[in-house]
Design a protein around this nucleic acid. Structure first.
Length: 428
RNA sequence: GGAGGGGUGGCUGAGCGGACGAAAGCGCCGGUCUUGAAAACCGGUAGGCCCGCAAGGGCCUCGUGGGUUCGAAUCCCACCCCCUCCGCCA
């Protein structure tokens, strides 16, 4: 949610900024409603002020046994006028709220303009794509052959795009998120959280998935609970509607969770294998910071995600997303893409964003100032650290051997019960 | 699924038609004392919105929304949320 005061102060800047990301929200209409609201509010408050004063007089008069019927009659009439004004204000409020909830965040000035991926800026390459001296396989071929990925069973259970990992495949999945959690907890100082995977509607509103993306979410209607599309939702909403003491900042959370995405309408693109699935595992990082600290924290968080890929020996590149490609709540986002040697393409495995105060405003997360009076909205950041299904692809494809087996990156061996290869006798 | 109990400031918790934005305690901030700290003592300490250049003024908020009333934290109705117990279940 944007700050209505800022929109009022500089509507042209807001419109320009939103245009950079291709948004065409009705800012003028919003301001018209806002002006009308304030006009009515001022009038109503004036009447209320008078009514309150008179009521006090009535109370005093009655206490002394006086007669106040004239004042009482007048106030009845005033109350009626107030009621009419209040109703108008309430209606406008609700319209303003609806509009405000659908306006995306303002992109940071520093990020590239543009609305398609060509405008993303590649800011870093790390590691060299491997050259194979044999014809590399794609992950689904490897997976089926090694018996570690079973798409047919997944679809028997839940339909297409629900993967099923098996044997060393399932173990590799568990090894990956265990390894990542340990790294972020032990080396990067995040507090580990094991959150619920279903959340209330208010949470989805707070982080910005609702109202716009409701169709992409899984909803358990009987309970009005949503399956989380990312652990960002529960992690950010831990502080929803509450005050944080400024001294507690920065707050850093890490959680593993499965992520559930209907992504209705996305069929036809990347449908094969693990690239686009309805359920995948992810380790997610979330931070709350002072406003002045958020950009530094963003770079730091990017570094934390990168370290996972470096430790796994996966070649990757970092993109700074253009204004049109960042998510609804984001002000600035880095994507990390990992190289998949079998498919021969870059796959997005992490998205690291600062949302500024956008989510804090929506979710009612405020900080009490350490010194002096008052509160402020903290900045929220979220980043994948990292997403699993695609990292899994990269590992299987990049570490495949000529004999059809797959080597385990050294960092994961302890998490794989000591196994160094998948597919060799006794290994899978 | 059944039966109860409850939602008041950062927290605990009192208040149950006007003097209540709200006692008290804790916490926090400032001060006195102290070499420093602790203790003790003194003082301060909710948030949001509107008008205003400001100083300042006003409105709203005791879970949410309605109702009764000149006046509601207090009375009535509906809803939401939390907790406890029983049942079922990993």
């Amino acid at each position: 949610m944007l700050d209505i005061k800022y929109i009022r102060k500089d509507p042209a800047a807001v419109k320009d900024a939103l245009a950079r990301r291709g948004d065409t929200s009705a800012i003028d209409e919003l301001l018209r409603m806002d002006a009308q609201r304030r006009r009515l509010l001022t009038e109503a408050e004036g009447l209320k002020s008078r009514k309150n004063a008179v009521s006090r007089e009535v109370g005093k008069a009655k206490a002394c046994g006086g007669n106040a019927s004239a004042a009482i009659d007048e106030m009845k009439e005033v109350s009626g006028r107030i009621e009419v004004l209040d109703m108008k204000v309430a209606e406008i409020d609700s319209n303003i709220e609806d509009l405000m909830l659908r306006i995306p965040n303002i992109p940071s000035e520093s990020i590239p303009s543009g609305v398609c991926s060509d405008n993303n800026r590649i800011v870093k390459h790390c590691g060299e794509p491997r050259r194979f001296d044999f014809e590399p396989s794609q992950h689904w071929e490897l997976g089926e052959r090694l018996g570690i990925l079973d798409f047919a069973s997944g679809s028997v259970l839940s339909g297409s795009n629900f993967p099923l990992f098996k044997g060393m495949g399932a173990r590799l999945e568990r090894a990956l998120y265990g390894f990542m959690l340990d790294m972020h907890v032990e080396k990067h100082g995040y507090t580990e959280v094991a959150p619920p995977y279903m959340v209330r509607r208010e949470c989805m509103l707070g982080t910005g998935q609702l109202p716009k993306l409701e169709g992409d979410m899984y909803l358990c209607e009987q309970d009005d609970l949503f399956l989380i599309p990312t652990a960002e939702v529960p992690l950010v909403n831990i502080h929803r509607g509450r005050l944080i003491d400024e001294r507690e900042l920065p707050i850093s959370y890490v959680a593993y969770s499965p992520c559930f995405r209907r992504e209705a309408g996305s069929y036809g693109k990347d449908t094969r294998g693990l690239i686009r699935v309805h359920q995948f595992d992810k380790v997610e990082l979330v931070k709350f910071t002072r406003p002045a600290d958020s950009f530094l924290a963003l770079d730091e968080m990017l570094g934390h995600a990168e370290e996972v890929l470096r430790a796994l020996g996966l070649p990757y590149r970092v993109l700074e997303l253009c204004a049109g490609e960042i998510s609804f709540a984001s002000a600035k986002t880095y994507d990390i893409e990992v190289w998949a040697g079998g498919a021969g393409k870059w796959l997005e495995v992490a998205s690291v964003s600062t949302c500024g105060d956008f989510q804090a405003r929506r979710a009612g997360i405020r900080c009490r100032l350490k010194e002096g009076k008052g509160t402020f909205y903290p900045h929220t950041l979220n980043g994948s650290g990292v997403a699993l299904a695609r990292t899994y692809i990269a590992i299987v494809e990049n570490y495949q051997n000529a004999d059809g087996t797959v080597s385990i990156p050294g960092a994961l061996v302890p998490y794989m019960g000591g196994a160094e290869v998948i597919g060799r006798k006794g290994g899978g």
